[in-house]
Amino acid sequence: MRRSALRTLPAIVLGAALLGAWEAYVDLSGVEADLLPAPHAVASALWSNGGLLWRNFAVTAEEVVLGLGLALLGGLALAVAIHLSPLLRRAAYPLAVGSQAVPIPVIGVLLVFWWGFGLFPKLVVIALICFFPVVVSTVDGLAAVDPEQPKLLRTLDASRWQSFRFAELPAALPAALSGARIALAVGVIGAFIAETTTPSTGAYPGLGREIITDVNFQTARAYAGTAMLVAFAIACFYALAIAERRLAPWSIRTRGETR
């Protein structure tokens, strides 16, 4: 416990130093509060608008988690298909890369036309933004198996499926989880994009929409909302890192091992 506290100390010190510098800058430069609110003003906005921000945050968090789940399912399925079929690799890989260049507002209206103002079109946007790192890192992980391994398994009479299940799939798990961590980091901004491109009719539209509404007239509240998104992204990233240690402990211990 003491050790993990020590490990987080550098991040806390750096964060505190940056906040101090920010506070000093606002104080000394006299920049207007609507342009850049001081950290203490952001903190007080967070305190006094806690209920509103929290309810919006709950909406956004749900979108991120479900959207990421969708991206993981889709990304893993596509990666496995690409790995098993060279034809599909040649056909689908360029399109997957290209999909990352599509500006979401272009298709936002279409998504709303298809699926309405609810949660689902937002999940589609997040999944579209998040699936790519999952696909790339999983495909690489699946291909990184020692080329001697399939030979060995064949002489043990393993079928193609058994070779995949016993060797390739577990070997790719750490890479897939790394991909998921990258996906998660972009997933939070993905939720922001989703909320601002596909309107919602719910009582609370989500933190992204709230920030966009606040940014001109309630700048401190917009910063407070942003701080929540930042904290959420960090928390999720490390939660996944812990999950990786649990699910694929060998990847940490054997990393860097040379043959």
Binding site: E148, K151, L152, T155, L156, D157, A158, F166, P170, R253
Partner: peptide, 27 residues
């Protein structure tokens, strides 16, 4: 015939006993 390759190629996610028993599971 069955091959024992130059590198042991043990699967890092399986215990020693599970690695030894791999052929039985494949069967």
């Amino acid at each position: 015939a069955v091959l024992m390759p130059q590198h042991d190629l043990l699967l890092p996610w399986l215990s020693a006993l599970d690695n030894a028993a791999l052929a039985l599971r494949i069967a």
